[in-house]
Nucleic acid binder design. Structure first.
Lengths: 238, 238
DNA sequence: ACAATAGTGTCTCTTAGACAATATCGA
DNA sequence: TCGATATTGTCTAAGAGACACTATTGT
């Protein structure tokens, strides 16, 4: 027993590994993907804009997802219906405090949810205007954006960027903003129809524009949390 | 400073989080996916077959991937050309020792690589014959298999299950074993041709069979590590 | 010669994209 | 009525799967 513990001591006695979660909260503003950032309270990088994140609290969090939900709620006041694990970033190099490990998650919300949370300290920055982020947050965000683009081509993921109700032309422009290219209108409607996730809101039309009003739709109740997948991409290019 | 440390002490002082890596090493035997397991040396679950895994050693591992490569090499003698992060599993419930976090990776190797490592303690178990695995290893393996199936439909991933050279019919049967259904021969060859990752080995034919011999191929040198992706799935079903 | 599988040509059917016709609003 | 965009129908082209034909081995 003494011998064994001398050759391989248990990890938590020997390794002060810093365990954190970071959340990439994405939304769409003026047709551009934006990420929510906050000024850091403490060193290192105090005052610098960074991803909302924090330590895993083993005493209160059931698991890392719990820690991510709690951190997002505490730091931004938002509870996101869609929150998925992205990847884990780790190593000695990424944090000056020492060997660290961050389990990262990404979330998509319509931008009125961010407005409703009413936290002026939450800053939305366009994903192509990011500068001087601390740690490896730039890489984490790039990974999240890539994941969202890849998934969007094959799934209903972008509906989480829309509000409770929306028109098909609105949804199409959300897809186009994410994929970064125009989508054929007829093909798009065929795909959405195949996904079978939307239902028209009886009698609700988008009024006020100087043209034929569009039908409003909402997500079918059973698709509140999980995605629907297509067999083929919406658009072959990427 | 005292006040801050009282309200939020740093994580590694307050939280004995167990940081580990686990590797899902997959191979194909007799047309079935198998996973490499080892009998655990120590408690908990001493003597039970489990995934190769171990503590992250902050002092020697540059990051979690490094820890995974080291652990795989130490426990199985194998260095896998393809090793990718799968997901991170965490929480209080998964390990009786306490709140733990495992960054998991998956690797694909041809089964002769496992034989060449000559480690009789490495046991290959068919993925549909797994029983009584400790921790959440069953779920980790299920996640890995699902990931491999999803990726295989759109990429050259299965070539890592073949040896250095192979025929197109052999490669097709590997794809079929993973996807779990027959693939149209003409479509398959069109896809592989599009991927543009293989080159014929001049004059090398698979001899010995009572029929026309097949041309042998190898992966083009530059595709040693990374995948090639298709726009459309090999097979629409899943 | 025969059985068996490799490798290739070609036809058909499905599906994505182009185009266009119709519908319905505000001005 | 006109301008604008929503919605739907239909044609065309690209790609996937079916089928079949030729090629080449061992027996």
């Amino acid at each position: 027993m003494i011998l064994r513990s001398a050759t391989r001591p248990v990890a938590h006695a020997m390794s002060p590994i810093i365990c954190t979660v970071d959340i990439v909260l994405l939304t769409l503003q003026r047709g551009m993907l934006h990420v929510a950032l906050l000024k850091r309270d403490h060193a290192p990088f105090a005052g610098v804009l960074a991803l909302p994140g924090g330590y895993v609290h083993a005493a209160e969090d059931a698991d890392a997802r719990d820690a991510a939900e709690r951190t997002l709620r505490e730091k931004t006041g938002i509870v996101s219906p869609y929150l998925e694990q992205l990847a884990t970033f780790s190593g000695l190099a990424r944090d000056p405090r020492g060997w660290s490990l961050s389990v990262t998650y990404y979330a998509l919300v319509p931008d009125d949810v961010i407005a409703a949370a009413n936290r002026p300290e939450v800053v939305l920055v366009a994903i192509d205007k990011l500068r001087g982020l601390p740690f490896d947050h730039q890489q984490i965000i790039a990974t999240a954006v890539q994941r969202v683009r890849d998934k969007s081509a094959y799934s209903s993921l972008p509906v989480y960027l829309c509000g409770k109700c929306f028109t098909l032309p609105q949804l199409q422009s959300v897809y186009e903003a994410i994929l970064g290219e125009p989508i054929n209108k007829v093909s798009f409607r065929r795909k959405i129809d195949e996904l079978d996730i939307l239902e028209p809101i009886e009698g609700a039309l988008e009024a006020g524009k100087a043209h034929r009003p569009a039908q409003m739709y909402r997500l079918k109740p059973r698709y509140g949390q999980h995605l629907s997948l297509t067999n083929r991409a919406l658009n072959a290019r990427s």
